[in-house]
Amino acid sequence: MEAFQKIHPLEFYRKFLERSVRPDGRSLQRIRNTTVSAGSILTADGSSFVKIGNTSVICGVRAEIAEKQQDQTTSNTCKSQIIVNIEMGPICSNIFSSTKPSEKAMSLCTQLNQLVQLLDIDPKQLYFDVDGKYLWYLYVDLYCLDYNGNILDAAIIAMLSALKNVKLPKGVVSDDGSEVYKEEDTMRTLIINSYLIPLSFAVIDEYVLSDPSLEEEKLSNGSISIVYNEKRELCLQLYSGITPLDEKTLQQCLDQTKQRTQEIKDLIDQSINDSKDK
Protein backbone atom coordinates (compact mmCIF):
# COMPACT_ATOMS: atom_id res chain seq x y z
CA MET A 1 0.00 0.00 0.00
CA GLU A 2 2.80 2.38 0.87
CA ALA A 3 4.55 1.55 -2.38
CA PHE A 4 1.36 2.27 -4.31
CA GLN A 5 1.10 5.65 -2.60
CA LYS A 6 4.70 6.51 -3.51
CA ILE A 7 4.55 5.38 -7.12
CA HIS A 8 1.06 6.50 -8.09
CA PRO A 9 0.13 9.19 -5.57
CA LEU A 10 -2.68 10.53 -7.71
CA GLU A 11 -4.24 7.11 -8.32
CA PHE A 12 -3.88 6.43 -4.62
CA TYR A 13 -5.82 9.61 -3.84
CA ARG A 14 -8.49 8.90 -6.41
CA LYS A 15 -9.25 5.56 -4.78
CA PHE A 16 -10.03 7.44 -1.57
CA LEU A 17 -11.80 10.41 -3.13
CA GLU A 18 -14.24 8.11 -4.95
CA ARG A 19 -15.44 7.11 -1.51
CA SER A 20 -15.56 10.74 -0.32
CA VAL A 21 -12.81 10.34 2.20
CA ARG A 22 -9.16 11.37 2.35
CA PRO A 23 -6.18 9.18 3.28
CA ASP A 24 -5.84 10.98 6.61
CA GLY A 25 -9.41 10.02 7.49
CA ARG A 26 -11.01 13.40 6.88
CA SER A 27 -14.13 13.92 4.79
CA LEU A 28 -13.67 16.28 1.82
CA GLN A 29 -15.06 19.30 3.66
CA ARG A 30 -13.45 18.60 7.00
CA ILE A 31 -10.94 21.14 8.26
CA ARG A 32 -8.04 19.96 10.37
CA ASN A 33 -7.97 20.68 14.04
CA THR A 34 -7.08 24.36 14.47
CA THR A 35 -5.56 25.80 17.61
CA VAL A 36 -4.78 29.45 18.29
CA SER A 37 -2.86 30.73 21.26
CA ALA A 38 -2.26 34.44 21.65
CA GLY A 39 0.40 36.16 23.70
CA SER A 40 2.87 33.31 23.59
CA ILE A 41 5.94 35.53 23.07
CA LEU A 42 6.31 37.75 26.13
CA THR A 43 9.02 39.98 24.67
CA ALA A 44 6.88 40.99 21.69
CA ASP A 45 4.19 43.66 21.78
CA GLY A 46 1.70 41.15 20.47
CA SER A 47 2.04 37.56 19.38
CA SER A 48 0.26 34.37 18.51
CA PHE A 49 0.87 30.78 17.57
CA VAL A 50 -1.43 28.98 15.18
CA LYS A 51 -1.60 25.34 14.24
CA ILE A 52 -3.80 23.88 11.52
CA GLY A 53 -3.09 20.17 11.67
CA ASN A 54 0.68 20.05 11.32
CA THR A 55 1.02 23.45 9.70
CA SER A 56 2.27 25.86 12.31
CA VAL A 57 2.91 29.58 12.11
CA ILE A 58 4.23 31.86 14.81
CA CYS A 59 3.64 35.58 14.66
CA GLY A 60 5.14 38.47 16.58
CA VAL A 61 4.30 42.16 16.40
CA ARG A 62 6.88 44.81 17.14
CA ALA A 63 5.72 48.38 17.74
CA GLU A 64 8.03 51.25 16.87
CA ILE A 65 7.56 54.95 17.33
CA ALA A 66 8.12 57.39 14.51
CA GLU A 67 7.36 61.00 13.93
CA LYS A 68 4.43 61.70 11.70
CA GLN A 69 5.64 62.34 8.20
CA GLN A 70 4.86 65.69 6.66
CA ASP A 71 3.26 64.31 3.54
CA GLN A 72 1.09 61.94 5.53
CA THR A 73 -2.31 63.52 5.25
CA THR A 74 -4.89 63.22 7.99
CA SER A 75 -6.90 60.74 6.02
CA ASN A 76 -8.77 58.13 7.97
CA THR A 77 -6.67 55.18 6.93
CA CYS A 78 -3.65 53.75 8.65
CA LYS A 79 -2.06 52.61 5.43
CA SER A 80 1.60 51.71 5.61
CA GLN A 81 1.56 51.83 9.41
CA ILE A 82 1.24 48.07 9.62
CA ILE A 83 3.89 46.15 7.73
CA VAL A 84 3.63 42.40 7.35
CA ASN A 85 6.41 40.01 6.47
CA ILE A 86 6.38 36.25 6.27
CA GLU A 87 9.43 34.05 6.47
CA MET A 88 9.31 30.58 4.99
CA GLY A 89 12.75 29.20 5.55
CA PRO A 90 14.15 25.69 5.26
CA ILE A 91 12.92 24.97 8.79
CA CYS A 92 9.36 24.49 7.58
CA SER A 93 10.04 22.39 4.50
CA ASN A 94 12.96 21.30 2.35
CA ILE A 95 11.39 22.99 -0.67
CA PHE A 96 12.52 26.39 0.59
CA SER A 97 16.04 27.73 0.62
CA SER A 98 17.53 29.96 3.25
CA THR A 99 19.17 32.42 0.89
CA LYS A 100 16.35 34.29 -0.75
CA PRO A 101 12.60 34.36 -0.12
CA SER A 102 10.68 31.95 -2.29
CA GLU A 103 8.10 33.09 -4.80
CA LYS A 104 5.45 31.54 -2.60
CA ALA A 105 6.53 33.63 0.39
CA MET A 106 6.66 36.79 -1.72
CA SER A 107 3.13 36.33 -3.10
CA LEU A 108 1.86 35.48 0.34
CA CYS A 109 3.49 38.56 1.79
CA THR A 110 1.86 40.81 -0.81
CA GLN A 111 -1.54 39.24 -0.14
CA LEU A 112 -1.19 39.60 3.63
CA ASN A 113 -0.21 43.24 3.28
CA GLN A 114 -3.27 43.85 1.11
CA LEU A 115 -5.50 42.09 3.63
CA VAL A 116 -4.17 43.96 6.64
CA GLN A 117 -5.26 47.21 5.00
CA LEU A 118 -8.82 45.93 4.90
CA LEU A 119 -9.00 45.64 8.67
CA ASP A 120 -11.13 48.34 10.17
CA ILE A 121 -8.70 50.10 12.50
CA ASP A 122 -9.32 53.61 13.76
CA PRO A 123 -6.19 55.68 12.93
CA LYS A 124 -6.37 57.18 16.44
CA GLN A 125 -5.63 53.69 17.75
CA LEU A 126 -2.15 54.03 16.35
CA TYR A 127 -1.42 57.47 17.81
CA PHE A 128 1.51 57.37 20.15
CA ASP A 129 0.48 60.44 22.13
CA VAL A 130 -2.94 62.01 22.41
CA ASP A 131 -2.52 64.45 19.52
CA GLY A 132 -0.95 62.04 17.11
CA LYS A 133 2.31 63.93 16.61
CA TYR A 134 4.04 60.59 16.86
CA LEU A 135 2.68 57.39 15.48
CA TRP A 136 3.04 53.72 16.20
CA TYR A 137 4.32 51.55 13.39
CA LEU A 138 3.54 47.87 13.74
CA TYR A 139 5.86 45.33 12.21
CA VAL A 140 4.11 41.99 11.93
CA ASP A 141 6.57 39.14 11.42
CA LEU A 142 5.32 35.68 10.66
CA TYR A 143 7.47 32.57 10.71
CA CYS A 144 6.31 29.30 9.29
CA LEU A 145 7.72 26.51 11.44
CA ASP A 146 6.09 23.52 9.85
CA TYR A 147 4.61 23.58 6.37
CA ASN A 148 1.96 21.02 5.68
CA GLY A 149 -0.30 22.90 3.31
CA ASN A 150 -2.79 25.73 3.66
CA ILE A 151 -0.29 28.31 4.83
CA LEU A 152 -2.53 31.24 3.85
CA ASP A 153 -5.26 30.38 6.36
CA ALA A 154 -2.75 29.80 9.13
CA ALA A 155 -0.93 33.05 8.36
CA ILE A 156 -4.13 35.11 8.29
CA ILE A 157 -5.40 33.71 11.58
CA ALA A 158 -1.97 34.20 13.17
CA MET A 159 -1.69 37.76 11.90
CA LEU A 160 -5.15 38.70 13.11
CA SER A 161 -4.86 37.18 16.56
CA ALA A 162 -1.41 38.70 17.07
CA LEU A 163 -2.69 42.15 16.11
CA LYS A 164 -5.69 41.80 18.41
CA ASN A 165 -3.26 40.84 21.15
CA VAL A 166 -1.10 43.98 20.74
CA LYS A 167 -0.68 46.03 23.89
CA LEU A 168 0.75 49.51 23.60
CA PRO A 169 2.10 51.66 26.43
CA LYS A 170 0.75 55.14 26.91
CA GLY A 171 2.95 57.65 25.15
CA VAL A 172 3.91 61.08 26.40
CA VAL A 173 5.71 63.77 24.40
CA SER A 174 7.60 66.43 26.34
CA ASP A 175 6.36 70.01 25.93
CA ASP A 176 9.02 71.09 23.46
CA GLY A 177 8.38 67.93 21.47
CA SER A 178 11.97 66.77 21.62
CA GLU A 179 11.58 63.79 23.92
CA VAL A 180 9.19 60.89 24.04
CA TYR A 181 8.46 58.61 26.97
CA LYS A 182 6.61 55.36 27.31
CA GLU A 183 4.59 54.82 30.43
CA GLU A 184 4.82 51.09 30.74
CA ASP A 185 2.41 50.77 33.65
CA THR A 186 -0.59 52.02 31.68
CA MET A 187 -1.00 49.67 28.76
CA ARG A 188 -3.88 49.74 26.31
CA THR A 189 -5.01 47.05 23.93
CA LEU A 190 -5.22 47.75 20.24
CA ILE A 191 -8.89 47.59 19.33
CA ILE A 192 -9.66 45.87 16.05
CA ASN A 193 -13.29 45.11 15.49
CA SER A 194 -13.08 43.35 12.18
CA TYR A 195 -12.19 39.76 11.43
CA LEU A 196 -10.88 37.92 8.41
CA ILE A 197 -12.39 34.54 7.68
CA PRO A 198 -10.10 32.53 5.38
CA LEU A 199 -10.56 29.14 3.79
CA SER A 200 -8.49 27.47 1.09
CA PHE A 201 -9.33 24.57 -1.17
CA ALA A 202 -7.53 22.24 -3.51
CA VAL A 203 -9.18 20.84 -6.62
CA ILE A 204 -8.21 17.29 -7.52
CA ASP A 205 -10.08 16.09 -10.62
CA GLU A 206 -13.63 17.19 -9.90
CA TYR A 207 -13.29 16.89 -6.13
CA VAL A 208 -12.89 19.96 -3.97
CA LEU A 209 -10.91 19.43 -0.79
CA SER A 210 -11.12 21.96 2.02
CA ASP A 211 -8.00 22.84 3.98
CA PRO A 212 -5.58 20.83 1.83
CA SER A 213 -2.44 19.25 3.19
CA LEU A 214 0.87 19.76 1.39
CA GLU A 215 0.52 16.48 -0.49
CA GLU A 216 -2.96 17.41 -1.64
CA GLU A 217 -1.71 20.82 -2.76
CA LYS A 218 1.04 19.17 -4.81
CA LEU A 219 -1.37 16.77 -6.50
CA SER A 220 -4.05 19.35 -7.13
CA ASN A 221 -4.88 20.80 -10.53
CA GLY A 222 -6.08 24.05 -9.04
CA SER A 223 -6.24 25.91 -5.78
CA ILE A 224 -8.87 28.29 -4.46
CA SER A 225 -8.43 30.71 -1.58
CA ILE A 226 -11.24 32.80 -0.21
CA VAL A 227 -11.24 35.38 2.56
CA TYR A 228 -14.39 37.00 3.90
CA ASN A 229 -14.77 39.57 6.64
CA GLU A 230 -17.27 39.30 9.49
CA LYS A 231 -19.80 41.37 7.52
CA ARG A 232 -19.83 38.65 4.88
CA GLU A 233 -18.09 40.81 2.31
CA LEU A 234 -15.45 39.27 0.11
CA CYS A 235 -11.89 40.40 0.91
CA LEU A 236 -9.79 38.08 -1.23
CA GLN A 237 -10.66 35.63 -3.93
CA LEU A 238 -7.95 33.66 -5.64
CA TYR A 239 -8.07 30.86 -8.14
CA SER A 240 -5.22 29.50 -10.15
CA GLY A 241 -4.86 26.14 -11.74
CA ILE A 242 -4.36 24.17 -14.90
CA THR A 243 -8.02 23.28 -15.34
CA PRO A 244 -10.93 25.70 -15.71
CA LEU A 245 -12.95 26.43 -12.61
CA ASP A 246 -16.63 25.66 -12.63
CA GLU A 247 -18.68 28.57 -11.31
CA LYS A 248 -20.81 26.23 -9.23
CA THR A 249 -17.68 25.00 -7.50
CA LEU A 250 -16.62 28.56 -6.81
CA GLN A 251 -20.02 29.33 -5.32
CA GLN A 252 -19.84 26.24 -3.13
CA CYS A 253 -16.46 27.35 -1.82
CA LEU A 254 -17.75 30.86 -1.16
CA ASP A 255 -20.68 29.44 0.81
CA GLN A 256 -18.50 27.10 2.77
CA THR A 257 -16.17 29.91 3.77
CA LYS A 258 -19.08 32.03 4.97
CA GLN A 259 -20.27 29.20 7.18
CA ARG A 260 -16.96 29.30 8.98
CA THR A 261 -17.41 32.88 10.24
CA GLN A 262 -18.55 32.07 13.77
CA GLU A 263 -16.02 29.30 14.22
CA ILE A 264 -13.06 31.55 13.38
CA LYS A 265 -14.41 34.42 15.47
CA ASP A 266 -14.77 32.13 18.47
CA LEU A 267 -11.29 30.69 17.98
CA ILE A 268 -9.67 34.11 17.92
CA ASP A 269 -11.78 35.61 20.71
CA GLN A 270 -11.12 32.60 22.89
CA SER A 271 -7.37 32.90 22.43
CA ILE A 272 -7.43 36.64 23.19
CA ASN A 273 -9.45 36.04 26.35
CA ASP A 274 -7.12 33.28 27.45
CA SER A 275 -4.10 35.53 27.01
CA LYS A 276 -5.67 38.19 29.23
CA ASP A 277 -5.89 35.76 32.13
CA LYS A 278 -2.18 35.08 32.01
Partner: peptide, 19 residues
Amino acid sequence: SQLKLMMIKSSGIITEQQN
Protein backbone atom coordinates in the same frame (compact mmCIF):
# COMPACT_ATOMS: atom_id res chain seq x y z
CA SER B 1 -11.85 30.15 -25.47
CA GLN B 2 -14.80 28.24 -24.00
CA LEU B 3 -15.23 31.21 -21.66
CA LYS B 4 -14.38 29.07 -18.67
CA LEU B 5 -12.71 30.73 -15.72
CA MET B 6 -8.96 30.05 -15.71
CA MET B 7 -7.69 32.53 -13.15
CA ILE B 8 -9.22 34.93 -10.71
CA LYS B 9 -7.71 37.26 -8.19
CA SER B 10 -9.74 39.85 -6.38
CA SER B 11 -8.56 41.84 -3.42
CA GLY B 12 -10.39 44.48 -1.47
CA ILE B 13 -13.89 44.55 -0.06
CA ILE B 14 -16.51 43.36 -2.53
CA THR B 15 -20.12 42.47 -1.82
CA GLU B 16 -21.57 39.18 -3.03
CA GLN B 17 -23.78 40.87 -5.57
CA GLN B 18 -20.92 42.93 -7.02
CA ASN B 19 -18.88 39.76 -7.28
